[in-house]
Amino acid sequence: MIEPADKPPEFVEALAKGLAILQAFDAGHPEMTLSEVARRVGLSPAAARRSLLTLGCLGFVGQEGKRFHLRARIMALGSTFYLSARIEDLLLPELRAVVERFGDASSIGTLDGQDVIYVAHHTVQRARRAAAVVGARYPAYATSIGRVLLAALPDDLLERRLDALDAKPLTSRTCTDRAALHAELMRIRAAGFATTVDQLDYGITAIAVPVRDGNGQTVAALNSSGYTGIITPELLIEERLQELRVTASRIGQAMARYPILAAMLRS
């Protein structure tokens, strides 16, 4: 179970355990036994059992024999964020406009620890590759969105993130060397955009720019991606960079009108 760095006296361990269990289920672990859940979350079997039974009573977890699984009610938690942040009204129209102009796909994501979480996405692509669906999370170091967000961190926080990073090669082109990644992030910080080629998965070439709130703080990043071999970073810069910057500026203006959106995206 992930422990927060600073826990206030009011910290509720039981709630933290339940949330950790919900997050333990994923594409690679759609169903698990009690012992598997306990091992994956780092809890005793007794503690995991209590949480699973509670989550089951609330309708978030189901059980078939000895194996536990999520139930559809869990989707309500994500939809609550989606609706209260007004993703449909404020972000998706901008992504649709980007895709209508350039084709391919466009996403908005925010930083969560060492990962990027995609909060809005639109695409005309149908490729079988890593999907940037809403709610998907991927290692920040391997995505254009993630690199923009990492580059925007204060120096001390960035150094701590890089020191704690356990970068794995997701493709043969993934940059996992700390010094090389730091140098790339410094280049991104200076340039104000990031490009990636086959870093997260083969076939993905992307460009991303920061989305800033009314105080100039980077709270999210916007990207446009295409197929490697059809599109190049140079072409993305030439054809899409300026439009992405204009779109990011409009999103920032929307945040000024609806400040809670920036607060909800801020890491």
Rank of each mutant, 00 (worst) to 15 (best):
E3C: 10
Q63H: 11
L34P: 07
I2W: 05
R40N: 08
A46T: 13
S44G: 12
A254Q: 15
G214A: 15
E3F: 12
L200E: 06
S172Q: 09
T80F: 05
V119A: 04
V246G: 06
G56W: 00
P210S: 09
L70G: 07
V99A: 10
E36W: 05
A206L: 01
L222S: 00
A38G: 07
G56H: 09
R173E: 14
L185P: 05
F81P: 01
R178T: 00
G65N: 04
I230V: 13
L22F: 03
F68R: 01
T176R: 02
R189E: 13
E243C: 11
R160V: 14
G226E: 04
A76H: 04
E3G: 05
M1A: 14
A254S: 15
R250W: 01
Y138Q: 03
D112M: 11
I21V: 13
E31S: 14
P45W: 05
S106M: 06
I74S: 03
A140P: 00
A167K: 03
G56F: 00
A47D: 15
A167H: 00
G28Q: 13
A14R: 13
R245C: 13
V37Y: 10
Y258Q: 15
A130Q: 02
F60H: 11
E64S: 10
I108N: 05
H29E: 14
I74L: 12
L185C: 07
L150R: 04
G18W: 03
P169Y: 00
D89I: 10
G65V: 02
Q217F: 05
Y118H: 06
A20T: 10
A85E: 03
G42Q: 08
V209L: 00
L58E: 08
D201I: 00
S225M: 09
E243A: 13
A14Y: 06
T123P: 00
M186P: 01
I145M: 12
R161A: 11
R49M: 10
S267N: 15
I2D: 14
L22A: 06
S106N: 08
A254W: 04
A151F: 07
K7H: 01
A179M: 13
I260G: 01
D89A: 15
A5M: 10
E184L: 09
D115F: 12
Q217N: 13
D166P: 00
K17L: 12
L15T: 10
L158P: 02
E243F: 14
A179G: 08
M264D: 09
P210Q: 09
V99S: 11
E238C: 12
T110D: 03
R161P: 02
V119F: 03
A27H: 09
V116N: 04
A206D: 12
A105D: 06
T205R: 05
L22N: 06
K17R: 13
K66Y: 07
S106R: 03
L77H: 07
A47V: 07
Q114D: 11
A262W: 05
V116H: 05
G62M: 09
Q23V: 14
G62E: 09
K7G: 05
A142Y: 01
T196F: 10
D163S: 12
T33I: 14
L165N: 09
G146W: 04
L34K: 04
T205G: 11
E100C: 04
R40Y: 01
Y82A: 10
G65D: 02
A190W: 03
A14W: 10
A164T: 10
L261E: 06
S35H: 12
T54R: 14
E36D: 15
Q63N: 13
D104V: 04
